[in-house]
Amino acid sequence: MFYRVGWHARLAHKLLRLDSTRLAVLSRMAELPALHPESIALLERLKDEKMKPLVEVTPAEARRQREMFAKKYSTPVVDFEGTTRNVSICISDRKLPVRIYQPVSYPSSVRPALLVYFHGGGWTVGSIETHHSACASLAQLSSSAVASVGYRLAPEHKFPAAVEDALASVEWFADGNNRRLVGLPEDMNVGVGGDSGGGRLAAVVAHELHGKCRISFQVLIYPGVDATDSTDSHKRYENGPILTKETIAKFRSYFATEQCHTTNPRLSPILYKTFEEQPPCVLIIAECDPYHDESLAYGKRLEDAGVKVKVLILPGLIHAFFSNPGICKESCRTAYSFIAEFLKEHEQRV
């Protein structure tokens, strides 16, 4: 069942006790698609925990809030049976933290795929910990290995630091000798994935490492791929819920440099000149999300270039649902299972 906010404004007000600004948003949303009950539950939990709007807090406070919320509400949708290892990989003059999830549920005749994953958070918040449950669930449901990368964040590290870390980490895992060092098979298909800002990183990696190392697949969850913010869905949801026009601008200001303009494909991957020979892609899209339209447009560019694309649009879901499985349990299970089936297509038979 879906709640149409216009029909249930009184109920939503009772549940959320929104401030005047958010009540104005609620009124405008009466003409928008229905919100799923789990979306309403997520907004309710944010209110209960007195989570301040991201534009009103420092990056340090935003991180603290996000970590606290994840610790309390990110129960996995499925128990992970396997090994979890925290490692550091040497990238040029620095080390990056990585958490590797290696399930035991695949037969000896199969080499699982490896998903190198980048968490969301506007390149400013989020971490390996905030996305632990999502990555563990993906590994368990797909019988694939997942490597969650702790890339550098803004404002301490400006653009293109996150991009450089993403490129270097995938190149590292694409080398079978390196994988062997962290207990992974030398012969396995390697792909990239991420949600929101992490999805943007995955898309950039798929383009820029084409021809340099083999990337077998990409998993993009409501990716930010068009920094012009000019689509209709950006206008529809400029005031949220959760991800607002002001929040996007604020986070962008944290990592901005002179190179960080909207025509730079590293910020707007949809502007890469060619999409031919990109790896197969699965797209997870939340219906009630500013990134809805650009995610669809990105999938169309891939399809028009002859790339195999699978798309799942979740009605009534809002941005950030994917990393909150403790609240959006059924929606996350649906999305995780959809991705898991895609990952199984990239197993290798021994």
Rank of each mutant, 00 (worst) to 15 (best):
D19S: 10
G6H: 02
D187R: 15
Q102R: 15
G326S: 09
E294N: 10
S253N: 08
A249W: 00
I248W: 04
C213S: 13
E186Y: 04
S233R: 09
E208V: 12
A9C: 05
F217K: 02
Y336C: 11
K250V: 07
A60T: 11
Y73R: 06
K310I: 09
W172G: 05
E67A: 13
G191Q: 06
C288E: 00
A113T: 08
Y151G: 03
D304P: 00
C288S: 03
R17N: 15
S233D: 06
S144E: 04
K310L: 14
H346M: 07
P265L: 12
G150L: 07
R64T: 12
C328S: 12
E345K: 08
L54M: 11
K52V: 01
F251G: 10
H234Y: 14
F159P: 02
G326K: 03
L153H: 09
S331L: 13
C260G: 08
Y298H: 11
K72W: 00
V219F: 12
K310Q: 15
L283K: 02
G306C: 10
V219T: 14
S143K: 04
R152V: 01
Y3A: 11
A41E: 10
L296H: 13
L267W: 05
I270M: 06
L153K: 11
T274S: 15
A297S: 11
D48K: 14
A154H: 02
L184E: 05
D93L: 11
T263A: 14
A41H: 02
N177R: 13
K250T: 13
I221V: 15
R333P: 01
G150F: 04
G240F: 03
E49D: 11
H234N: 10
L18K: 01
H13Q: 10
A174G: 15
H36R: 03
A256Y: 00
E38A: 12
D304E: 15
S88A: 11
P103Q: 08
I313N: 09
P265A: 12
S109K: 09
L343R: 04
L209G: 05
K344I: 02
K212Y: 03
W7K: 14
G122V: 05
V149T: 07
L167I: 14
D175L: 11
D19G: 09
L302Y: 07
S268F: 00
L16Q: 05
C260S: 15
Q278W: 05
V307S: 05
Q348R: 15
L302E: 04
Q259Y: 07
I91C: 02
F255E: 04
G240N: 05
E277D: 15
V25Q: 06
Q102T: 12
F118S: 07
I339E: 07
H119Y: 15
F275P: 03
N86Q: 14
E258W: 07
C135E: 09
R333T: 13
G224W: 00
L343T: 08
M29A: 15
R179C: 07
I327N: 08
R214M: 12
R85I: 09
S27G: 08
H210V: 06
M188H: 09
R236G: 05
V163H: 06
L46E: 09
V78H: 03
A162N: 04
I327M: 13
V205I: 11
N86C: 09
